[in-house]
């Protein structure tokens, strides 16, 4: 099997987020492989171990983005493509999908995995749009993946429960981090990843012009960043259980009036 995993490098959102004058402050932030993409890599590696597969990573990003690719390679992926061009900085979902469409043109694969969303934008559109552009069937928010009789068996977390779908090959699947617990790259894996092939791809290689990408980017544009309105800490109630419950009931009925 041939599996592609589309990856993104994102700021580590577990850290304190700093915003100044409407701009996101990237200095001092650690950049990591998007957690949802790490789950894609993990799942692809599990399938590789089970059935045999070649796992290829694709990332659009600047020079620093290579580190995220190397993390995926260190986990065990076979090779990687690094799509990089000054015109491709800070792409939105729609533009990213356009670039990836060009990348996948003429390539053979059994399926493409992408994270269900990126931890920085939380937009959740790129995977589905890419499948549309490639005219592939797709499913989002997968929490389980297997292959049976040349079909991909996908468990998807839906509104009413886990939906089980059989997808033909090729298809595109976006993965939730509830799918698995991505392995931590061993030091051996980290060292081995240096020797794995990582191919550099430019916009020209893709046969795409900066204008075509710009056209997608212009459909919507990011104006500024801010912090969410803070929710203030209310009353901390301490004491024995009786006191706690009595005080709470009093507050809920008389003050908040929600009971």
């Amino acid at each position: 099997m041939k599996i592609y995993v589309c990856c993104k490098q994102v700021p580590d959102v577990a850290m304190t987020i700093q915003i100044k004058d409407g701009k996101f402050i990237s200095e001092g932030m650690n950049y990591v492989l998007n957690a949802y993409d790490a789950s894609c890599v993990e799942e692809a590696l599990v399938l590789k171990e089970k059935y045999g597969a070649e796992v290829t990573l694709v990332l659009i990003g600047d020079e620093a983005g290579k580190e995220a690719l190397r993390k995926g390679l260190a986990m065990g992926a076979d090779n990687a493509f690094h799509i990089s061009d000054p015109a491709l900085n800070n792409l939105g979902s729609q533009a990213a999908a356009k670039v990836l469409q060009a990348f996948f043109k003429g390539r053979d694969f059994d399926f493409i995995l992408t994270g269900k969303q990126a931890q920085d934008s939380d937009m959740g559109l790129a995977g589905g749009i890419l499948s549309g552009l490639l005219n592939l069937p797709y499913v989002t928010n997968a929490v389980g993946l297997d292959v049976q009789d040349k079909m991909i068996v996908v468990k998807r977390q839906g509104d009413e429960g886990v939906e089980v779908l059989h997808m033909p090959m090729p298809s595109l699947i976006t993965c939730s981090n509830d799918m698995n617990d991505p392995r931590i790259p061993s030091l051996k894996g980290i060292m081995a990843s240096k020797k794995k092939p990582m191919e550099q791809v430019s916009l020209t290689d893709l046969g795409l012009s900066a204008d075509e990408v710009l056209k997608e980017s212009q459909k919507s544009s990011l104006k500024s960043f801010g912090l969410p309105p803070a929710r203030k800490a209310g009353a901390k109630i301490e004491g024995d259980a009786q006191t706690l419950v009595a005080t709470l009931m009093e507050k809920l009925t008389k003050e908040a009036k929600v009971l």
Partner: peptide, 23 residues
């Protein structure tokens, strides 16, 4: 927003050549 809508909106955006923003 629902898991269903989150699932089908990307293809809809693509097929209509629209601008999509979530959440």
């Amino acid at each position: 927003t629902s898991e269903g809508i989150k699932d089908y909106i990307p293809a809809l955006v693509q097929k209509l050549d629209g601008a999509g923003i979530t959440d």
